[in-house]
């Protein structure tokens, strides 16, 4: 009897669990699982615009696309964009948070200003940046380093705009991480004899390391998914020098050839997965989580 009762209670609990999961699963099914399934379908079959005929190209077809110059150049641009934006974004966020993490009159005003980009859309900040960098009248018109019209520097310009766009998020999260460090720990470090700089590296940074790991992952994903700023600032140019993978994928989607775009999207998916897993595995060893 007791066994039966326990079993039926377990079944009831399981039923309850699925009931609670259902809304989330439904959303995922519609917006994630089904599109992902369709993506595979698109990638495995080549379709021609002039007919309804489909031809199975299989994994060889996907691989052919992923080994093309088009994909590798996009991959390279994406990785460069990531390297430009992620470390700079993290360092700037930490610097700003350090500057704003003190008890001063009116510090809230600065905290609000520093975090303001979180409330402005990519489109708005891109347009503002475009104005700043305008070759005729912008404040940075003579800064060749960020020139959007030259192949060598355009990606850096787009990257700077993205760093700026993300700085509010990084700032707020790092600041919250710093504020979570008990004041007594900083005081203990001061009495131990650490100066401000060594205290920062020996105490503050290790203690906010979970926050930094989280931000690194978020910023990498943001970099891999950057689209709007490229569309608004350079349209992928000049000469495709700012065409990241995602940008190429969207460009390809607008044509009739779905198979190439779908293959690229799968490639980007695998890249994102690998980088994220790698980050967690690598950083987890050095990250301290309070237990």
């Amino acid at each position: 009897m007791a066994v039966v009762a326990a079993r039926s209670r377990k079944a009831k609990e399981a039923l309850m669990a699925y009931a609670m999961l259902a809304p989330l699963l439904a959303v995922f099914a519609v917006f994630a699982y089904y599109p992902f399934y369709r993506l595979f379908q698109f990638a495995l079959f080549q379709k021609f615009s002039n007919s309804d005929e489909e031809r199975f190209v299989g994994f060889q077809g996907i691989w052919d696309n992923l080994s093309s110059d088009e994909f590798t150049s996009g991959l390279w641009t994406t990785l460069k964009f990531m390297l430009y934006t992620v470390p700079a974004g993290l360092v700037l966020g930490v610097l700003l948070a350090t500057a704003a993490h003190r008890r001063l009159k009116g510090i809230k005003i600065f905290q609000t200003i520093f975090s303001s980009t979180i409330a402005s859309s990519v489109a708005v900040s891109s347009v503002v940046f475009l104005t700043l960098i305008n070759r005729q009248s912008g404040f940075f018109q003579n800064v060749e380093f960020l020139n959007l019209e030259r192949t060598g520097s355009a990606l850096r310009g787009v990257a700077l705009s993205s760093v700026w766009q993300n700085i509010g998020l990084t700032f707020i999260i790092v600041l919250a991480g710093m504020q979570a460090i008990p004041e007594e720990i900083n005081e203990a470090a001061t009495l131990d004899g650490y100066g401000p700089i060594r205290r920062f590296f020996r105490v503050t940074v290790p203690m906010i390391s979970p926050t930094l790991l989280f931000l690194a992952v978020v910023l990498v994903v943001q970099a891999l998914q950057a689209y709007a700023q490229i569309e608004l600032l350079t349209l992928g140019g000049p000469q495709g020098s700012t065409e990241t993978l995602l940008y190429k994928i969207t460009e390809l989607q607008s044509r009739t050839d779905l198979q190439t775009g779908a293959s690229f999207a799968l490639g980007l998916f695998v890249l994102t997965l690998l980088i994220s897993v790698g980050q967690f595995v690598m950083l987890n060893r050095r990250v301290h989580y309070d237990n």
Binding site: I185, E187, A188, H288, D290
Partner: peptide
């Protein structure tokens, strides 16, 4: 100084 919370470095 010994603090009430001990203020040890958790990492």
């Amino acid at each position: 100084m010994v603090f009430q919370s001990y203020a040890l470095y958790p990492h």
